[in-house]
C-alpha cells in the first residue's frame, strides 16, 4: 500500500531523513519508534505532503501511484490520513463545519456526490459516540480550548469520518492518560481492516500494548536501523535505543 524508497528529506536545507525505505502492505500495522529528533515526525509530515519539507531523493508510492508531487489535500483524496502530534487550533471554524467540508472535499476528489447534512450528522454522531466524544465539542471551534486528550480524540473522530486507506498517526498517544489512551487505541483498532493499513509513530511502547503492531521499526538519525516483530518494541523498552540499535 505504501512503498517508500531511499527517501531523503530536507527541512530548511538541513537533511533530516537520510535514505529511508519502508513497505507497508494492506492489513498491516507498522510502528516506527525512535528518540526525539530521529526524524519520525518529518517522515509523517512528508508522507502527508507538507510543502516546506523538501524531498531531495527517493520515491513515495501510495497504492502504486507516485504521490510525491501531489498536494496535501490530493493525498487525502487518494486515501491518506495524518494524525497530528499537535492538532492545530482554528478559532472561528466550527469542528462540524470543518469535518463536513473535509469529507465532502474528499468525496468530490473521488467524483462522488456531497454527503447531505442529515447523513453527515448521523455518521458523526456514531463515530463521536464510539470515541466517547461529546457532540457539543464538535460544535465548538476546531480544537480551541480542548485538552490534550480531547484534541487526540478529535483526530480519531476525523479519521473515522474520513475512513482512510492508510492512517499515519504521529505521536497520537502522547499526552494521554490511561483512559484516553484506551479510547484512542479502540479508535485505531476500529480502523484496522484487511483493506487498510496504519503507521504508528511513537516514543513509547505503551500504545503498542493496546494496538498490536505487525512490524516495528527503529529509527535513528533519519534512517530505519532495525525492523522486527512486536517483540522488538518490548526489547527497546527494556534495553533502550542505544543497545538495540
Amino acid at each position: 500500500m505504501l512503498t517508500v524508497r531511499d527517501l531523503r528529506v530536507s527541512v530548511e536545507n538541513k537533511e533530516i531523513i537520510k535514505g529511508l525505505s519502508l513497505e507497508i502492505k494492506p492489513g498491516e500495522v507498522h510502528a516506527i519508534m525512535g528518540l526525539n529528533g530521529a526524524g519520525k515526525s518529518t517522515l509523517a509530515n512528508t508522507i502527508a505532503g507538507r510543502n516546506d519539507y523538501e524531498v531531495t531523493a527517493g520515491t513515495i508510492e501510495f497504492d502504486g501511484k507516485d504521490i510525491k508531487d501531489l498536494e496535501p489535500h490530493e493525498r487525502v483524496g487518494e486515501g491518506l490520513f495524518l494524525g497530528f502530534q499537535y492538532p492545530v487550533e482554528i478559532p472561528g471554524v466550527s469542528n462540524l463545519n470543518f469535518m463536513r467540508t473535509a469529507l465532502n472535499s474528499v468525496r468530490r476528489y473521488r467524483g462522488e456526490e456531497d454527503m447531505s447534512a442529515a447523513e453527515f450528522m448521523k455518521l458523526v454522531r456514531v463515530k463521536a459516540a464510539e470515541l466517547k466524544m461529546d457532540l457539543d465539542m464538535l460544535k465548538r471551534f476546531v480544537n480551541v480550548g480542548f485538552s490534550g486528550g480531547e484534541k487526540k480524540r478529535n483526530e480519531m473522530v476525523q479519521m473515522a469520518v474520513l475512513n482512510p486507506k492508510l492512517a499515519v498517526l504521529d505521536e497520537t498517544d502522547s499526552g494521554l492518560d490511561i483512559d484516553a489512551l484506551k479510547v484512542v487505541a479502540d479508535g485505531i483498532n476500529a480502523q484496522r481492516r484487511n483493506d487498510t493499513a496504519i503507521l504508528l509513530i511513537t516514543h513509547y511502547q505503551r500504545l503498542l500494548n493496546y494496538v498490536q503492531p505487525d512490524v516495528v521499526h527503529v529509527m535513528i538519525d533519519g534512517k530505519i536501523v532495525k525492523s522486527g516483530g512486536k517483540e522488538l518494541a518490548a526489547e527497546l523498552e527494556e534495553k533502550g535505543y542505544a543497545d538495540v540499535a
Binding site: E71, H73, V88, I90, G92, V93, N97, F98, A102
Partner: peptide, 30 residues
Amino acid sequence: LDAKAMFYLMSRGIDPATARQMLVEAFTDD
C-alpha cells in the same frame, strides 16, 4: 494566514482555496 492552520485544513482533504476562504471567514466573523 496561519501556515499551520492551512496545512491542517489541507491535510484533511480541503483544497487550498477553500481552506483560505474558511480561515478568512473565521477571521472576519469576529
